[in-house]
Amino acid sequence: MSECQEFQSNPERPVPPTAPLSRASITDAAIDFIEEKGLTKLSMRALASTLGCGTMSLYSHVKNRDDLIAAIVQELLERSRLLQVTGTTYPTWQEQIRASLFAYRDLAAAYPASFELLALAPYGVAPVAEHLEGIVESLRRAGVPADRAYVVLGALDAYATGFLMVWARTQAEADGTAPVEPSPLTELRTLAAFDHGLDVFIAGFEREFTP
């Protein structure tokens, strides 16, 4: 009998049948929960209720909420194209940058409510550190001067994270509300504007790297 099935045997708390618990199934359910109800509503108790299990059952697979967040960050990376992009050598550093930032943008579009967990994850913790070092190495392979690769990463991450955090949160909070009338100001916060801003960044780096 699985942990969920055992919990379901309580006649005072009927819940629908669920699959056996695992770290992966808990992580998947947490992402679905965040996208449906919002990050602020996520707690171990709320997630356990969604899964139809006792809260303590979760702790057999995730140590605590911080460990759950780490698992979500890892899963978001794996669901994105980011790892694939950093493992690919592109003909130019411009193409490498565009591929990396477009993958980051697409992740924000696919998981607007969960995106900030990856976007705001500390640089020095796994799996973020390994991913960022992978980006630096991919930039070097594509021709970014070795002494500038970290500077390029920092500037691009500051731009992309700041822009996409605001955009993603706007998308998550706008669900079910009346659409905002287009205006010159609202056009500043579109994905088309993000792409244009990225082109401006790349043009600036081109001038810096050109002898």
Score class of each variant (00 low, 15 high):
47 L>P: 06
46 A>G: 04
49 S>V: 01
67 D>A: 12
73 V>C: 08
74 Q>H: 12
57 S>F: 00
100 S>H: 11
91 P>N: 01
74 Q>E: 14
85 V>R: 08
62 V>G: 02
49 S>P: 00
90 Y>W: 07
75 E>S: 13
50 T>S: 13
88 T>Y: 03
64 N>D: 15
47 L>F: 01
100 S>Y: 08
94 Q>S: 15
67 D>Y: 00
64 N>P: 04
59 Y>E: 05
49 S>D: 11
83 L>Y: 02
95 E>G: 03
55 T>D: 09
48 A>I: 06
99 A>C: 08
63 K>C: 00
66 D>C: 00
92 T>H: 09
92 T>V: 11
100 S>N: 13
55 T>H: 08
53 C>A: 15
93 W>E: 12
84 Q>W: 03
63 K>G: 05
53 C>T: 13
56 M>N: 10
98 R>E: 14
77 L>Y: 15
99 A>L: 07
66 D>I: 03
61 H>R: 07
100 S>D: 13
93 W>R: 10
91 P>F: 02
66 D>K: 09
95 E>T: 10
96 Q>R: 12
66 D>A: 09
59 Y>A: 05
86 T>E: 14
61 H>T: 02
61 H>E: 04
96 Q>W: 01
54 G>W: 00
57 S>C: 05
83 L>A: 10
90 Y>F: 14
55 T>R: 14
